[in-house]
Design a protein around this nucleic acid. Structure first.
Lengths: 252, 252
DNA sequence: CGAATGCTTGATATGGTTCAAATCCCGTGG
DNA sequence: CCACGGGATTTGAACCATATCAAGCATTCG
């Protein structure tokens, strides 16, 4: 079953075990999940609002975003997902999309059917718990985005976002100071609730301050210390209490 | 066990079964959860950031909010919980608070230990699923808040919020056009990412337009149709796909 | 009656938007 | 090899929604 052609789900398992404790049997069940590789083009709705989906979408490489829309047609990206994330694990328990999902750049994914996921989750409570916990980390990020967009000025917003992605991209919660970020300035605007024009000016300001350079889809952080300070960034919400702890297994 | 002194968890069960299918045995297990009633004063941190909690907080009456903070001390409310909600069900799988929780008015709650909740969730996969699903509805609301705060102007933001609360307060997803909402204008500002002053002016504008009156902690919606239109409100995200569906039980 | 808290209103300031146009970049086809 | 076209980025100038600062008013409570 460790399909020869299909890439492995080791990355998915790694993500889960970074936050939850799984036994060998449970881990194997994850790795053995049937999956189907595919490519997703940029800027085309992958899941539409109101559409029913029957599988999840694990990201091997690339960036996907959840989009909200206003009646005037302006868009707001409410969540970002990168390599190693499942873009819509929540759909296992709520299979009707409440917001659209798009790839921001060409993305390669593995589709895993809800049916298979439900089966493992039903058989192994600890797996269900791991899924649930993973979703709750996403929710914590979402909370931060509300704060970011609601109460911070442009420079702070962008700094915060760039710090967050540095940590999420990095291994082991250590920030990666140089990372690929294949999105446009218009996308950054949709993430931060700003105008593309203002994003452009603000990035320039951050560059002139010697904090970060965003160019050619690569983020290069020059001064992590000052950038986190300006962006009011504290990685706590990303890893707080995600140390796997056996005592927290639903069944003990 | 239907403790004579302690109020019942029927409201909690109702909430769960509005979105998930539970058997009689599972329902009984919920109703039998041990609990402790208590009062929470307004404007005092109930859970602090970084604090470890070992119980959840079911709201019998009142309003609680999750708070984020910026370094300048301004606050942003990232989520609201009212009667019938569990303010922090997520803490079962992530017991360390990543944001503060406060009551906005005096609130009466039932505390339920994580241990007890984990036990039912571990024993009954369908209960774990119901908890998980409930958390995902909260996350969908959070998504909407990002859009609200990121892309809408003051009038639209407030209208959207007031519509959302009308539906959440109402029975059976039907909006309640007149409902108590015991929060101050400063709280509304913290929910919408505006200034108290501007909230005041905007509420006046909505009142002058004949849309809503917010007075004495009561919201009175005069024109639901126009208010939802102005607020770009579509209740879909609150109830889409929350019709209980037996085929979705983790184990079938 | 005084103090606290929340609400209301006015005047002024500003961060970010909007509109518009120029430039860069890169792939494509002649 | 070069001209062309289209998306992305950059810059400028005018404008506006909301913030900020400041004061007065209402209501409740001790």
């Amino acid at each position: 079953m460790t399909g020869s052609g299909t890439p492995s789900l080791q990355l998915f398992l790694d993500r889960l075990t970074a936050r939850s404790v799984l036994t060998d049997e449970e881990s194997q069940a994850i790795l053995n999940l049937p999956r189907r590789a595919s490519q997703v083009d940029a800027n085309r709705d992958f899941v539409r609002i109101g559409e029913r989906v029957d599988h999840c979408c694990f990201i091997v490489e690339g960036v996907m975003g959840r989009f909200g829309q206003t009646s005037q047609g302006t868009r707001q990206i409410t969540a970002l997902h990168i390599s190693g994330d499942v873009a819509d694990l929540h759909s296992v328990v709520r299979p009707v999309g409440t917001s659209a999902i798009q790839a921001l750049s060409t993305t390669s994914v593995l589709r895993i059917s809800h049916e298979a996921l439900r089966k493992v989750a039903g058989r192994f409570p600890a797996v269900a718990e791991a899924f649930w916990r993973d979703c709750m980390v996403d929710a914590a990020v979402l909370s931060q985005w509300v704060v970011n967009v609601g109460r911070r000025d442009a420079k702070t917003r962008l700094s915060h976002l760039l710090c967050e992605m540095a940590v999420r991209t990095g291994d082991d919660r250590r920030p990666q100071l140089r990372y690929p970020f294949p999105v446009t300035q218009a996308h950054l605007a949709d993430m931060t609730g700003l105008t593309p024009v203002h994003v452009n000016r603000t990035l320039k300001a951050l560059r002139d301050d010697g904090l970060v350079i965003v160019r050619d889809r690569v983020v290069q952080i020059l001064d992590w210390k000052r950038l986190t300070k300006l962006g009011e960034f504290d990685a706590g919400y990303l890893d707080a209490d995600t140390t796997p702890d056996a005592r927290r297994r639903l069944l003990d």
